[in-house]
Computed example of a mutant assay.
Amino acid sequence: MLVAGATSTSGLVASRALIASGAGVIAVGRSPEKLELLSTAGARTAVADLADEAAVFALAERLREEGVAVDGLLHLVGGWRGGGGLAGQTEADYRFLENSFTALRNVTRAFDAGLRASAAARVAIVSSTAVARPLAGGANYAAVKAASEAWTRAVAQGFAKDARDRGEPLRAAAVVFRVKALAGLEERVADAYIDLWGAEAGAVNDTIVDVTGSLAAG
């Protein structure tokens, strides 16, 4: 599985938890020093700016050429900037936050064919409860998270359509994890992601999951 944003604080914690569970992890991020920590822990690592379309597609092609199958994607590219009410939502802050959505678009497109070909692919993003209750001081943040959720649901629909067109059972699933704040829940997110493989794809595809355990239809 590929962890996008593995060198973020949440990415480091979640990646270690996934490795500890026995998962094969491809950790991708921009910091060679932080990736070295995950390499030592047992992950395969790759330095890449996931907001750079060419870099992401080059990474996907390199893995394909090496025969490395990516059957899962956990998207942890993120960050927070906000405050100051609606007037305080600056363009610079929005562009910073938008990188997360851009990275999601790049990675899901670059690895789409491989995920659809997998016997059991699972894609998950970490979103925010702010999508359901956006505040003026976090409007940029909530808007980017809402866009990311919409994109992930489109990935889910693509998986379902591909299975129907092939006349085969649905084997891939795309899921949204929502948290109020990720700090302190990184291992729980990793556990929830691993648990997706224990469920039928049709039961979890296009769903919104509260990492505390509750499930809401997508």
Rank of each mutant, 00 (worst) to 15 (best):
R44V: 13
R153N: 13
D165W: 03
G137T: 11
A60R: 01
A43W: 00
G114Y: 10
Q89V: 06
R81M: 02
A92N: 06
R95G: 01
W80D: 00
V126R: 00
A124S: 11
F96E: 06
A143W: 02
V131I: 15
A147H: 00
A54K: 10
A120F: 03
L50R: 05
R166L: 14
A154C: 09
L170N: 10
S127I: 08
A110L: 05
L104Q: 09
A120C: 08
K145M: 11
T129W: 09
A58S: 15
V131W: 09
G167K: 08
L59I: 07
V126L: 13
E61T: 12
D93Q: 13
S128V: 09
V47E: 13
G85L: 07
G158L: 01
A121S: 14
L73V: 15
Q157Y: 10
D71R: 04
G158Y: 04
A60C: 02
A139Y: 10
A55T: 07
L59D: 01
G137K: 03
A173R: 08
E149Y: 00
T152C: 05
E66H: 02
A87H: 13
F96Y: 15
S128E: 04
A132S: 14
Q157I: 07
A92T: 11
K161T: 15
R109Q: 13
E149A: 06
V107G: 04
Y141P: 01
D71L: 00
Q157L: 14
D112L: 08
F96K: 00
R166G: 12
W80H: 13
L97G: 02
S128G: 05
G114M: 11
R109Y: 05
S127F: 03
L76Y: 12
A120E: 13
A124M: 11
E53R: 09
E149G: 06
D162N: 10
L59W: 03
W151I: 07
D49M: 07
A132L: 15
S118V: 11
R64D: 14
S148R: 02
V56F: 07
G84K: 12
A160E: 14
K145P: 04
R133V: 10
K145Q: 14
G167E: 12
S118D: 12
S127Y: 11
A48F: 06
R81H: 07
V56C: 00
L76N: 14
R166Y: 05
A173C: 12
A43C: 06
T152K: 01
A121N: 08
R64E: 14
A142M: 01
A120H: 13
A142C: 08
S148C: 04
D52W: 03
L73W: 02
E168W: 03
A48P: 10
A124N: 02
G79M: 06
L115A: 09
G82T: 07
A156G: 15
G85C: 05
V155I: 15
L170F: 10
P134D: 05
L73K: 06
D112G: 00
R95H: 07
G88C: 05
R109H: 12
S118E: 07
A124R: 00
R105Y: 11
A51C: 03
P134N: 09
Q157R: 13
R133G: 01
V126Q: 08
E61C: 01
V70P: 10
D165H: 05
P169A: 11
W80A: 09
A121P: 14
P169D: 08
Q89K: 04
A43L: 02
L86A: 14
G137D: 08
V144R: 00
H75T: 03
A46Q: 10
D165F: 02
E66N: 03
